Deep mutational scan, measured.
Amino acid sequence: MATDAALRRLLRLHRTEIAVAVDSAFPLLHALADHDVVPEDKFQETLHLKEKEGCPQAFHALLSWLLTQDSTAILDFWRVLFKDYNLERYGRLQPILDSFPKDVDLSQPRKGRKPPAVPKALVPPPRLPTKRKASEEARAAAPAALTPRGTASPGSQLKAKPPKKPESSAEQQRLPLGNGIQTMSASVQRAVAMSSGDVPGARGAVEGILIQQVFESGGSKKCIQVGGEFYTPSKFEDSGSGKNKARSSSGPKPLVRAKGAQGAAPGGGEARLGQQGSVPAPLALPSDPQLHQKNEDECAVCRDGGELICCDGCPRAFHLACLSPPLREIPSGTWRCSSCLQATVQEVQPRAEEPRPQEPPVETPLPPGLRSAGEEVRGPPGEPLAGMDTTLVYKHLPAPPSAAPLPGLDSSALHPLLCVGPEGQQNLAPGARCGVCGDGTDVLRCTHCAAAFHWRCHFPAGTSRPGTGLRCRSCSGDVTPAPVEGVLAPSPARLAPGPAKDDTASHEPALH
């Protein structure tokens, strides 16, 4: 009773807030009518008042009428009001819900409408889902798969039609296919003929059939049928067999079959498995989609049935006599038709004709302190090069084509190399640097090759510096006499390219 009084008091307290929050009759008014909170006449009256005075006034009048009803109607109103779709449509209802007392429970059932309790003993237990329907569909599909699609060729003596089998029958139906081979029951999904010589313990000319048996419980189990008994694959494991010639990621696949039913060829011909030897223990289905393919039931050349050999690369099948050149017997292992072999060759040939990528240039590290003349020119003028003790990398590039010797140069053309002071002394051009340390401070000019250098860098042994005729380390061993002091540049003949010694390969005349 306390809860009923509290709900009535809360409705009177929030009546105006609810009326202002509800700006549309749908969905709240319609939901109240659906849950029998508002009768039909009051529903029509509220809609009429909404058209006349507006939605807030109409709902305020409806809530005032609701306060005169019993506690069950008020409880049902609060339940409908706080439904998710009403809270989404009328956003101003959320503060009312947040301020609702926590001790007021809106989930209690309506009085007088409590459903009768059902004894637990009368409640049926839930049924577990079964796979009976899938099993029945598999039974119905198996006879259809064994139905012949056409008439065999005159040369083929193997013609068999499976008798119709009602689904209610649980007995196995067997077809006489000759040579002791028996087909599987209607619940078998796949059958492959297997030679009895590969099964340990088999006697006589009995041949087993590799099947997948579907049981009534819905589970499946792969086994071997020899005669009327089934054997699990673990009985046929043979770890010492060295003649297993397995197909790549293979499961067994029928390579020879008669049109209309699988079996042995007439005249004692023995149908073979995809792999010879003992049956392997793992009978998992292969991951290669080509091995799941269903080959055609007629020859791809003459479009006739009979004894066919199936290609492992495509769905086509052929007569042995229709092949070019014809085959006398079934080859062992994987067999592919000429079209598949030709496609494989065409895929391999473009790969062989692809040009080989060019090898990157060989990189040879230079000892610290040495650099090529090109690196000396590329440096920024007026700045010493940083990191001189790091190992430089010199790339061996292809030799350029031989060019004509340089033409003779006048001494005026070499004027930018040297600057003559007032006393006739050779001065260095701006930006000249030593080729060893890279520093341009207090550098000297070689009178023979006009290269800038430090005496301490080229002659670290402490050799005394002569007063005139300074030469760098590369030119100090040259027998050519030094030019007379005061000459602007060496003779043009000295600039012609010539053979250089091994220790002077990195010091070429550089223009500054």
Score class of each variant (00 low, 15 high):
V188S: 04
K164W: 14
G242S: 06
A6F: 14
G178C: 13
D70Y: 00
F26Y: 00
D84W: 15
A152T: 14
R132K: 02
Y85P: 00
R247V: 12
V37I: 03
V206F: 07
Q225V: 01
V80E: 01
V80G: 06
L75R: 05
T232V: 11
K161A: 05
K253E: 05
S234I: 09
D105Y: 15
A145D: 05
G197S: 12
T147N: 13
D36T: 00
A19Q: 00
W65M: 01
A145C: 11
H35S: 03
D198L: 05
G219I: 14
I211L: 04
S217R: 09
T151E: 12
Y90K: 00
S156T: 15
S250M: 15
A205N: 06
H30R: 03
S168L: 07
R15G: 00
L49H: 00
L273V: 10
A258T: 09
V226P: 11
K164P: 15
D238S: 07
T16D: 01
K42F: 01
N179K: 12
L122T: 06
L81M: 01
A170G: 07
G251M: 05
L273N: 08
P163C: 15
S64Q: 00
L175K: 07
E171K: 06
A145Q: 12
G219N: 05
M184W: 03
L7A: 01
R272D: 13
K161C: 15
K222H: 06
K165D: 03
V37E: 00
A264F: 10
E137S: 05
H48P: 00
Q94F: 02
V199F: 13
G240W: 11
P116S: 12
D105A: 15
M194Y: 06
W65I: 00
G180Y: 05
Q225P: 05
A258E: 12
V256S: 11
A191T: 13
A21C: 06
E45V: 02
L210S: 03
R247S: 09
E40V: 02
A25F: 05
G180L: 02
S196V: 13
Q57H: 01
Y85F: 06
K164Y: 05
P154I: 15
Q172I: 15
L62K: 00
L210P: 06
A258R: 01
A261Y: 12
V118R: 04
Q44H: 00
E237A: 11
V188D: 07
E17C: 00
K102H: 00
R174L: 04
P143F: 13
R9A: 11
F59Q: 00
D76N: 01
S24F: 02
T68H: 04
E171H: 15
S196H: 10
K114A: 01
A271T: 08
N86V: 14
L87Y: 01
G197M: 04
G91R: 13
P56Q: 07
E136K: 01
L49C: 01
F230T: 07
A121F: 13
K52V: 14
R92S: 03
G208L: 03
T232P: 08
G208H: 01
Q44N: 10
S71Y: 15
V199T: 04
G180W: 01
F26R: 01
Q94K: 13
S156Y: 08
F59I: 10
E207K: 02
A2E: 12
L28A: 01
R110Y: 15
V256K: 02
L122C: 12
D36N: 11
K245N: 04
A264I: 00
E207L: 02
Q44F: 15
I224T: 05
R149E: 10
P125Y: 07
S250D: 04
V192K: 12
K102E: 13
Y85R: 00
G155Q: 01
S156G: 09
D198F: 05
T130S: 14
T46R: 04
D4C: 04
T130L: 12
K161F: 15
P148K: 01
R79W: 02
V199N: 08
Q212S: 12
L122E: 07
G219D: 08
K50E: 06
G54W: 02
S24I: 02
G227V: 04
A145Y: 15
V226S: 04
G155W: 15
C55G: 01
R174N: 00
